[in-house]
Simulated assay, not measured.
Amino acid sequence: MRETVQLLRALDELDATQQQAVLATVVKVEGSAYRRPGARMLIPPIGGAVGTVSGGCLEGDLIKKAWWLTELGEPVLRTYSTGVGVDAADEEEELAFGLGCNGTVHILLERVRGGQTPLPLSLLRHVQASGAPAVLATVIASSDDSVRLAERAALDPTGKLHLTLRQAALTRALEADLQSVRQRQSPALQRYRLAGGEVEVLFEYLTPPRRLVVFGAGHDAQPLVSLARQQAWQVAVIDARRHFARRERFPEANQVLHLGIDQDHDLAALLESAAVVVMSHSYSQDRHWLERALRLRPSYIGQLGPRSRTERLLDEIGPISRHLPAYARLHYPMGLDIGGDAPESVALSVLAEITAHFNGRAGGMLMAREAPIHDSVPALHG
Protein backbone atom coordinates (compact mmCIF):
# COMPACT_ATOMS: atom_id res chain seq x y z
CA MET A 1 0.00 0.00 0.00
CA ARG A 2 2.88 2.38 0.72
CA GLU A 3 4.08 1.89 -2.85
CA THR A 4 0.65 2.89 -4.15
CA VAL A 5 0.82 6.17 -2.25
CA GLN A 6 4.31 6.81 -3.60
CA LEU A 7 3.21 5.99 -7.16
CA LEU A 8 0.30 8.42 -6.97
CA ARG A 9 2.55 11.16 -5.60
CA ALA A 10 4.96 10.57 -8.47
CA LEU A 11 2.03 10.77 -10.87
CA ASP A 12 1.04 14.14 -9.38
CA GLU A 13 4.57 15.40 -10.03
CA LEU A 14 4.35 14.07 -13.57
CA ASP A 15 1.10 15.96 -14.12
CA ALA A 16 2.61 19.16 -12.71
CA THR A 17 5.60 19.05 -15.04
CA GLN A 18 3.79 17.52 -18.05
CA GLN A 19 6.57 14.95 -18.34
CA GLN A 20 6.39 11.35 -19.55
CA ALA A 21 7.25 8.17 -17.68
CA VAL A 22 7.08 4.44 -18.25
CA LEU A 23 4.74 2.37 -16.12
CA ALA A 24 5.98 -1.19 -15.54
CA THR A 25 3.44 -3.71 -14.22
CA VAL A 26 3.90 -7.38 -13.32
CA VAL A 27 1.03 -9.05 -15.17
CA LYS A 28 1.90 -12.74 -14.94
CA VAL A 29 4.23 -14.99 -12.94
CA GLU A 30 5.11 -18.60 -13.66
CA GLY A 31 6.96 -20.42 -10.93
CA SER A 32 8.65 -18.46 -8.16
CA ALA A 33 9.08 -14.69 -8.11
CA TYR A 34 9.52 -11.98 -5.47
CA ARG A 35 6.56 -9.81 -6.53
CA ARG A 36 3.13 -10.89 -7.69
CA PRO A 37 0.88 -9.66 -10.53
CA GLY A 38 -0.18 -6.09 -9.89
CA ALA A 39 3.22 -4.89 -8.61
CA ARG A 40 4.06 -1.59 -10.31
CA MET A 41 7.01 0.70 -10.91
CA LEU A 42 7.03 4.18 -12.46
CA ILE A 43 10.18 5.06 -14.39
CA PRO A 44 10.57 8.83 -14.95
CA PRO A 45 12.96 10.34 -17.50
CA ILE A 46 15.12 11.85 -14.72
CA GLY A 47 15.59 10.61 -11.18
CA GLY A 48 14.97 7.29 -9.51
CA ALA A 49 12.15 4.89 -10.21
CA VAL A 50 9.22 4.64 -7.81
CA GLY A 51 8.02 1.20 -6.73
CA THR A 52 9.43 -2.26 -7.43
CA VAL A 53 8.58 -5.23 -9.64
CA SER A 54 11.09 -7.69 -8.14
CA GLY A 55 13.46 -8.00 -5.21
CA GLY A 56 15.82 -5.58 -6.94
CA CYS A 57 16.97 -8.05 -9.61
CA LEU A 58 15.07 -6.77 -12.64
CA GLU A 59 14.70 -3.07 -11.93
CA GLY A 60 18.12 -2.10 -13.31
CA ASP A 61 17.49 -3.68 -16.69
CA LEU A 62 14.02 -2.14 -16.91
CA ILE A 63 15.28 1.33 -16.04
CA LYS A 64 17.93 1.06 -18.74
CA LYS A 65 15.66 -0.27 -21.47
CA ALA A 66 12.07 0.76 -20.74
CA TRP A 67 12.34 4.01 -22.69
CA TRP A 68 13.67 2.60 -25.94
CA LEU A 69 11.41 -0.45 -25.69
CA THR A 70 8.41 1.90 -25.67
CA GLU A 71 9.81 4.56 -28.01
CA LEU A 72 7.00 3.95 -30.52
CA GLY A 73 4.44 4.72 -27.82
CA GLU A 74 2.92 1.23 -27.88
CA PRO A 75 2.69 -1.10 -24.86
CA VAL A 76 5.34 -3.83 -24.75
CA LEU A 77 5.48 -7.11 -22.83
CA ARG A 78 8.92 -7.90 -21.39
CA THR A 79 9.65 -11.43 -20.12
CA TYR A 80 12.37 -12.41 -17.64
CA SER A 81 13.48 -15.92 -16.70
CA THR A 82 15.13 -16.33 -13.30
CA GLY A 83 16.15 -20.00 -13.32
CA VAL A 84 19.69 -21.31 -12.99
CA GLY A 85 21.37 -22.00 -16.30
CA VAL A 86 18.57 -20.58 -18.45
CA ASP A 87 19.86 -19.60 -21.86
CA ALA A 88 17.70 -17.04 -23.57
CA ALA A 89 20.33 -15.73 -25.97
CA ASP A 90 18.20 -16.66 -28.96
CA GLU A 91 14.97 -15.29 -27.53
CA GLU A 92 14.34 -11.70 -28.58
CA GLU A 93 11.66 -11.09 -25.95
CA GLU A 94 13.09 -13.02 -23.03
CA LEU A 95 16.02 -12.11 -20.84
CA ALA A 96 17.66 -14.75 -18.65
CA PHE A 97 18.73 -13.97 -15.09
CA GLY A 98 20.53 -16.84 -13.36
CA LEU A 99 19.04 -16.07 -9.96
CA GLY A 100 17.99 -19.60 -9.07
CA CYS A 101 14.36 -18.57 -8.44
CA ASN A 102 13.11 -20.85 -11.24
CA GLY A 103 10.44 -18.41 -12.30
CA THR A 104 9.28 -16.40 -15.29
CA VAL A 105 8.03 -12.85 -14.84
CA HIS A 106 6.01 -11.02 -17.50
CA ILE A 107 6.11 -7.23 -17.22
CA LEU A 108 3.92 -4.84 -19.17
CA LEU A 109 5.59 -1.54 -20.15
CA GLU A 110 3.47 1.49 -21.06
CA ARG A 111 4.18 5.16 -21.67
CA VAL A 112 2.44 7.54 -19.26
CA ARG A 113 2.01 11.22 -20.10
CA GLY A 114 1.50 13.95 -17.53
CA GLY A 115 -2.11 15.12 -17.54
CA GLN A 116 -3.32 11.88 -19.15
CA THR A 117 -3.70 9.48 -16.24
CA PRO A 118 -4.03 5.89 -17.49
CA LEU A 119 -6.92 3.78 -16.25
CA PRO A 120 -4.89 1.67 -13.77
CA LEU A 121 -3.52 4.72 -11.95
CA SER A 122 -6.79 6.68 -12.02
CA LEU A 123 -8.51 3.60 -10.59
CA LEU A 124 -5.89 3.29 -7.82
CA ARG A 125 -6.38 6.97 -7.03
CA HIS A 126 -10.16 6.47 -6.80
CA VAL A 127 -9.72 3.45 -4.51
CA GLN A 128 -7.38 5.40 -2.21
CA ALA A 129 -9.74 8.38 -2.03
CA SER A 130 -12.98 6.43 -1.57
CA GLY A 131 -11.79 3.63 0.70
CA ALA A 132 -13.70 1.15 -1.49
CA PRO A 133 -12.33 -1.62 -3.77
CA ALA A 134 -12.31 -1.77 -7.56
CA VAL A 135 -11.59 -4.39 -10.24
CA LEU A 136 -9.27 -3.94 -13.23
CA ALA A 137 -9.06 -6.26 -16.25
CA THR A 138 -6.00 -5.95 -18.53
CA VAL A 139 -5.31 -7.76 -21.79
CA ILE A 140 -1.85 -9.31 -21.34
CA ALA A 141 -1.73 -11.44 -24.54
CA SER A 142 -3.77 -11.54 -27.74
CA SER A 143 -3.64 -13.40 -31.05
CA ASP A 144 -6.84 -11.67 -32.21
CA ASP A 145 -6.16 -8.56 -34.32
CA SER A 146 -9.26 -6.85 -32.93
CA VAL A 147 -7.87 -6.88 -29.37
CA ARG A 148 -4.65 -5.11 -28.46
CA LEU A 149 -2.19 -5.59 -25.62
CA ALA A 150 -3.03 -3.48 -22.53
CA GLU A 151 -6.64 -2.77 -23.53
CA ARG A 152 -8.73 -2.67 -20.38
CA ALA A 153 -12.07 -2.83 -18.63
CA ALA A 154 -12.75 -1.87 -15.03
CA LEU A 155 -15.37 -1.51 -12.31
CA ASP A 156 -14.59 1.55 -10.23
CA PRO A 157 -15.44 1.81 -6.50
CA THR A 158 -18.95 3.04 -7.35
CA GLY A 159 -19.60 0.08 -9.65
CA LYS A 160 -19.33 2.15 -12.84
CA LEU A 161 -17.92 0.33 -15.88
CA HIS A 162 -14.92 1.77 -17.76
CA LEU A 163 -13.74 0.43 -21.13
CA THR A 164 -10.75 1.06 -23.41
CA LEU A 165 -11.54 -1.83 -25.77
CA ARG A 166 -14.14 -2.16 -28.52
CA GLN A 167 -14.35 -5.89 -29.22
CA ALA A 168 -18.03 -6.56 -28.50
CA ALA A 169 -17.85 -10.25 -27.61
CA LEU A 170 -14.92 -9.72 -25.24
CA THR A 171 -16.56 -6.67 -23.69
CA ARG A 172 -19.67 -8.68 -22.81
CA ALA A 173 -17.58 -11.46 -21.26
CA LEU A 174 -15.48 -9.01 -19.26
CA GLU A 175 -18.52 -7.19 -17.86
CA ALA A 176 -19.75 -10.44 -16.30
CA ASP A 177 -16.31 -11.55 -15.11
CA LEU A 178 -15.51 -8.20 -13.52
CA GLN A 179 -18.53 -8.75 -11.31
CA SER A 180 -17.36 -12.28 -10.49
CA VAL A 181 -13.94 -11.02 -9.38
CA ARG A 182 -15.59 -8.32 -7.32
CA GLN A 183 -17.56 -10.98 -5.46
CA ARG A 184 -14.55 -13.29 -5.04
CA GLN A 185 -12.34 -10.42 -3.87
CA SER A 186 -9.20 -12.00 -5.32
CA PRO A 187 -7.16 -11.74 -8.56
CA ALA A 188 -7.62 -14.11 -11.47
CA LEU A 189 -6.36 -14.95 -14.96
CA GLN A 190 -8.68 -15.93 -17.77
CA ARG A 191 -8.36 -16.94 -21.42
CA TYR A 192 -11.06 -16.14 -23.98
CA ARG A 193 -11.51 -17.74 -27.39
CA LEU A 194 -12.69 -15.22 -29.97
CA ALA A 195 -13.36 -15.54 -33.68
CA GLY A 196 -9.90 -14.19 -34.52
CA GLY A 197 -7.83 -15.93 -31.86
CA GLU A 198 -7.22 -16.21 -28.14
CA VAL A 199 -6.96 -13.44 -25.55
CA GLU A 200 -5.53 -13.67 -22.02
CA VAL A 201 -6.70 -11.22 -19.35
CA LEU A 202 -5.41 -10.42 -15.86
CA PHE A 203 -8.05 -9.41 -13.31
CA GLU A 204 -6.79 -7.37 -10.35
CA TYR A 205 -8.83 -6.82 -7.20
CA LEU A 206 -7.68 -3.41 -6.01
CA THR A 207 -8.13 -2.96 -2.27
CA PRO A 208 -8.17 0.30 -0.30
CA PRO A 209 -5.68 0.91 2.52
CA ARG A 210 -6.09 -1.33 5.55
CA ARG A 211 -7.68 0.40 8.53
CA LEU A 212 -6.61 0.00 12.15
CA VAL A 213 -8.50 1.31 15.18
CA VAL A 214 -6.52 1.34 18.43
CA PHE A 215 -8.48 1.69 21.66
CA GLY A 216 -5.88 2.92 24.13
CA ALA A 217 -3.36 5.73 23.73
CA GLY A 218 -0.66 4.48 26.05
CA HIS A 219 3.06 4.46 25.29
CA ASP A 220 2.90 0.92 23.85
CA ALA A 221 0.32 2.04 21.26
CA GLN A 222 2.82 4.48 19.75
CA PRO A 223 5.09 1.93 17.98
CA LEU A 224 2.01 0.03 16.75
CA VAL A 225 0.64 3.19 15.14
CA SER A 226 4.04 4.02 13.66
CA LEU A 227 4.49 0.54 12.22
CA ALA A 228 1.00 0.50 10.74
CA ARG A 229 1.53 3.88 9.12
CA GLN A 230 4.76 2.60 7.55
CA GLN A 231 2.47 0.16 5.73
CA ALA A 232 0.28 3.16 4.69
CA TRP A 233 -2.63 1.89 6.80
CA GLN A 234 -5.29 4.34 7.94
CA VAL A 235 -5.02 4.53 11.74
CA ALA A 236 -7.39 5.93 14.37
CA VAL A 237 -6.45 6.12 18.08
CA ILE A 238 -9.20 6.41 20.71
CA ASP A 239 -8.94 6.89 24.47
CA ALA A 240 -11.25 8.11 27.22
CA ARG A 241 -8.35 9.87 28.95
CA ARG A 242 -7.82 13.34 27.53
CA HIS A 243 -4.17 13.56 28.59
CA PHE A 244 -3.44 10.39 26.54
CA ALA A 245 -5.60 11.12 23.48
CA ARG A 246 -3.46 13.96 22.16
CA ARG A 247 -2.34 14.59 18.59
CA GLU A 248 1.24 15.34 19.64
CA ARG A 249 1.54 11.81 21.09
CA PHE A 250 0.48 10.26 17.77
CA PRO A 251 1.57 12.64 14.99
CA GLU A 252 1.44 9.84 12.39
CA ALA A 253 -2.14 8.74 13.12
CA ASN A 254 -4.93 9.82 10.80
CA GLN A 255 -7.26 10.43 13.75
CA VAL A 256 -6.76 10.84 17.50
CA LEU A 257 -10.09 10.90 19.33
CA HIS A 258 -10.97 11.59 22.95
CA LEU A 259 -14.21 9.67 23.60
CA GLY A 260 -15.62 9.11 27.05
CA ILE A 261 -17.00 5.70 27.97
CA ASP A 262 -20.00 7.33 29.69
CA GLN A 263 -21.28 8.64 26.35
CA ASP A 264 -22.82 6.91 23.37
CA HIS A 265 -20.72 7.16 20.19
CA ASP A 266 -21.58 5.83 16.75
CA LEU A 267 -18.51 3.81 15.78
CA ALA A 268 -20.12 1.57 13.15
CA ALA A 269 -18.58 3.25 10.11
CA LEU A 270 -15.15 3.56 11.72
CA LEU A 271 -14.99 -0.11 12.74
CA GLU A 272 -16.62 -1.63 9.64
CA SER A 273 -14.14 -4.17 8.15
CA ALA A 274 -11.29 -2.63 10.18
CA ALA A 275 -8.75 -4.26 12.46
CA VAL A 276 -9.48 -3.32 16.07
CA VAL A 277 -6.95 -3.50 18.89
CA VAL A 278 -8.02 -3.01 22.52
CA MET A 279 -5.01 -2.06 24.66
CA SER A 280 -5.92 0.77 27.03
CA HIS A 281 -4.48 -0.92 30.18
CA SER A 282 -7.66 0.27 31.90
CA TYR A 283 -9.99 -2.55 32.88
CA SER A 284 -13.15 -0.42 32.61
CA GLN A 285 -12.10 1.03 29.25
CA ASP A 286 -11.15 -2.36 27.83
CA ARG A 287 -14.50 -3.83 28.87
CA HIS A 288 -16.37 -0.94 27.27
CA TRP A 289 -14.43 -0.86 23.99
CA LEU A 290 -14.35 -4.65 23.67
CA GLU A 291 -18.12 -4.86 23.99
CA ARG A 292 -18.60 -2.07 21.44
CA ALA A 293 -16.31 -3.82 18.96
CA LEU A 294 -18.00 -7.20 19.48
CA ARG A 295 -21.39 -5.66 18.67
CA LEU A 296 -20.17 -4.20 15.36
CA ARG A 297 -18.53 -5.62 12.22
CA PRO A 298 -14.74 -5.29 12.33
CA SER A 299 -12.66 -7.82 10.42
CA TYR A 300 -10.35 -8.48 13.39
CA ILE A 301 -10.43 -7.76 17.13
CA GLY A 302 -7.32 -8.15 19.26
CA GLN A 303 -7.37 -7.90 23.04
CA LEU A 304 -4.11 -7.24 24.85
CA GLY A 305 -3.36 -9.08 28.06
CA PRO A 306 -3.48 -12.58 29.54
CA ARG A 307 -6.17 -15.01 28.45
CA SER A 308 -7.66 -15.07 31.96
CA ARG A 309 -8.14 -11.28 31.93
CA THR A 310 -10.01 -11.36 28.63
CA GLU A 311 -12.15 -14.26 29.83
CA ARG A 312 -13.08 -12.14 32.85
CA LEU A 313 -13.92 -9.19 30.58
CA LEU A 314 -16.19 -11.42 28.49
CA ASP A 315 -17.88 -12.81 31.60
CA GLU A 316 -18.59 -9.30 32.86
CA ILE A 317 -20.01 -8.25 29.50
CA GLY A 318 -22.41 -11.14 30.06
CA PRO A 319 -23.39 -14.49 28.55
CA ILE A 320 -24.30 -12.72 25.33
CA SER A 321 -20.62 -11.76 24.77
CA ARG A 322 -19.79 -15.07 23.10
CA HIS A 323 -22.77 -14.74 20.78
CA LEU A 324 -22.19 -11.20 19.59
CA PRO A 325 -21.57 -10.64 15.81
CA ALA A 326 -17.77 -10.26 15.94
CA TYR A 327 -16.90 -12.82 18.63
CA ALA A 328 -15.58 -15.29 16.03
CA ARG A 329 -13.01 -12.67 15.00
CA LEU A 330 -11.73 -12.03 18.52
CA HIS A 331 -8.05 -12.91 19.11
CA TYR A 332 -6.78 -13.17 22.67
CA PRO A 333 -4.06 -12.95 23.66
CA MET A 334 -3.46 -11.07 20.44
CA GLY A 335 -0.30 -11.30 18.36
CA LEU A 336 2.11 -13.92 17.08
CA ASP A 337 4.37 -15.82 19.47
CA ILE A 338 7.73 -14.15 18.75
CA GLY A 339 8.87 -13.92 22.34
CA GLY A 340 9.50 -10.18 22.77
CA ASP A 341 7.96 -8.02 25.51
CA ALA A 342 9.17 -4.52 24.60
CA PRO A 343 6.53 -2.19 23.10
CA GLU A 344 8.20 -2.42 19.68
CA SER A 345 8.18 -6.23 19.83
CA VAL A 346 4.52 -6.27 20.85
CA ALA A 347 3.71 -3.94 17.95
CA LEU A 348 5.53 -6.22 15.51
CA SER A 349 3.75 -9.28 16.90
CA VAL A 350 0.31 -7.69 16.70
CA LEU A 351 0.70 -6.17 13.24
CA ALA A 352 2.08 -9.46 11.90
CA GLU A 353 -0.98 -11.34 13.16
CA ILE A 354 -3.36 -8.76 11.70
CA THR A 355 -1.55 -8.94 8.34
CA ALA A 356 -1.77 -12.74 8.37
CA HIS A 357 -5.48 -12.50 9.19
CA PHE A 358 -6.20 -10.14 6.30
CA ASN A 359 -4.21 -12.39 3.94
CA GLY A 360 -5.91 -15.59 5.09
CA ARG A 361 -2.71 -17.05 6.53
CA ALA A 362 -2.03 -18.76 9.86
CA GLY A 363 1.11 -16.75 10.57
CA GLY A 364 3.47 -19.70 11.03
CA MET A 365 7.08 -20.02 9.92
CA LEU A 366 7.59 -20.27 6.17
CA MET A 367 10.03 -23.15 6.66
CA ALA A 368 7.07 -25.25 7.81
CA ARG A 369 4.93 -24.32 4.80
CA GLU A 370 4.82 -27.09 2.20
CA ALA A 371 2.99 -24.99 -0.39
CA PRO A 372 4.76 -22.21 -2.33
CA ILE A 373 5.32 -18.98 -0.42
CA HIS A 374 2.94 -17.09 -2.71
CA ASP A 375 -0.43 -18.34 -3.86
CA SER A 376 -0.68 -18.57 -7.64
CA VAL A 377 -3.25 -16.48 -9.50
CA PRO A 378 -6.02 -18.94 -10.44
CA ALA A 379 -8.10 -19.10 -13.57
CA LEU A 380 -11.46 -17.42 -13.15
CA HIS A 381 -13.25 -20.24 -14.93
CA GLY A 382 -12.06 -23.83 -15.39
Rank of each mutant, 00 (worst) to 15 (best):
residue 296 L to C: 02
residue 76 V to F: 06
residue 86 V to A: 05
residue 295 R to V: 09
residue 228 A to Q: 08
residue 179 Q to M: 12
residue 214 V to R: 00
residue 54 S to V: 00
residue 16 A to I: 08
residue 22 V to E: 06
residue 328 A to C: 10
residue 146 S to F: 00
residue 113 R to P: 03
residue 163 L to E: 12
residue 19 Q to R: 15
residue 249 R to K: 11
residue 48 G to L: 08
residue 186 S to G: 11
residue 4 T to V: 12
residue 69 L to I: 09
residue 185 Q to H: 04
residue 370 E to P: 03
residue 205 Y to T: 05
residue 268 A to Y: 00
residue 94 E to S: 08
residue 125 R to A: 10
residue 309 R to N: 07
residue 303 Q to P: 02
residue 281 H to P: 08
residue 138 T to L: 07
residue 128 Q to L: 15
residue 81 S to P: 03
residue 3 E to K: 04
residue 256 V to W: 01
residue 51 G to K: 07
residue 88 A to Q: 09
residue 310 T to H: 06
residue 370 E to N: 13
residue 122 S to Q: 14
residue 159 G to P: 04
residue 249 R to F: 08
residue 96 A to P: 11
residue 236 A to N: 09
residue 127 V to E: 06
residue 234 Q to G: 08
residue 194 L to C: 03
residue 106 H to Y: 15
residue 130 S to F: 07
residue 160 K to F: 04
residue 264 D to M: 10
residue 298 P to K: 04
residue 273 S to P: 04
residue 174 L to D: 02
residue 328 A to G: 11
residue 37 P to C: 02
residue 105 V to T: 06
residue 20 Q to R: 15
residue 50 V to I: 11
residue 308 S to K: 05
residue 182 R to W: 09
residue 214 V to C: 14
residue 25 T to H: 10
residue 68 W to R: 12
residue 189 L to F: 09
residue 46 I to C: 11
residue 374 H to K: 09
residue 327 Y to N: 03
residue 246 R to P: 00
residue 350 V to Q: 04
residue 18 Q to R: 15
residue 281 H to C: 11
residue 379 A to R: 13
residue 97 F to V: 14
residue 311 E to D: 06
residue 112 V to I: 13
residue 188 A to L: 05
residue 100 G to K: 01
residue 49 A to R: 02
residue 216 G to T: 10
residue 327 Y to K: 05
residue 121 L to I: 08
residue 45 P to G: 14
residue 299 S to T: 05
residue 311 E to A: 06
residue 186 S to I: 09
residue 40 R to I: 06
residue 264 D to N: 11
residue 181 V to F: 03
residue 309 R to D: 02
residue 117 T to Y: 07
residue 118 P to I: 06
residue 54 S to E: 02
residue 213 V to G: 00
residue 220 D to A: 13
residue 156 D to S: 04
residue 54 S to W: 03
residue 221 A to H: 01
residue 141 A to N: 08
residue 228 A to P: 00
residue 51 G to H: 10
residue 84 V to H: 10
residue 316 E to A: 10
residue 335 G to V: 03
residue 264 D to F: 02
residue 216 G to F: 02
residue 308 S to E: 13
residue 263 Q to I: 01
residue 53 V to W: 00
residue 36 R to K: 12
residue 125 R to F: 02
residue 288 H to I: 07
residue 13 E to H: 11
residue 365 M to F: 15
residue 328 A to P: 09
residue 37 P to H: 03
residue 146 S to A: 10
residue 57 C to H: 05
residue 120 P to K: 12
residue 3 E to L: 00
residue 151 E to N: 08
residue 93 E to L: 13
residue 24 A to S: 07
residue 179 Q to S: 10
residue 249 R to D: 00
residue 45 P to M: 15
residue 359 N to R: 14
residue 320 I to W: 00
residue 32 S to M: 02
residue 220 D to M: 03
residue 332 Y to T: 12
residue 186 S to F: 04
residue 225 V to A: 05
residue 326 A to S: 15
residue 13 E to K: 10
residue 237 V to I: 06
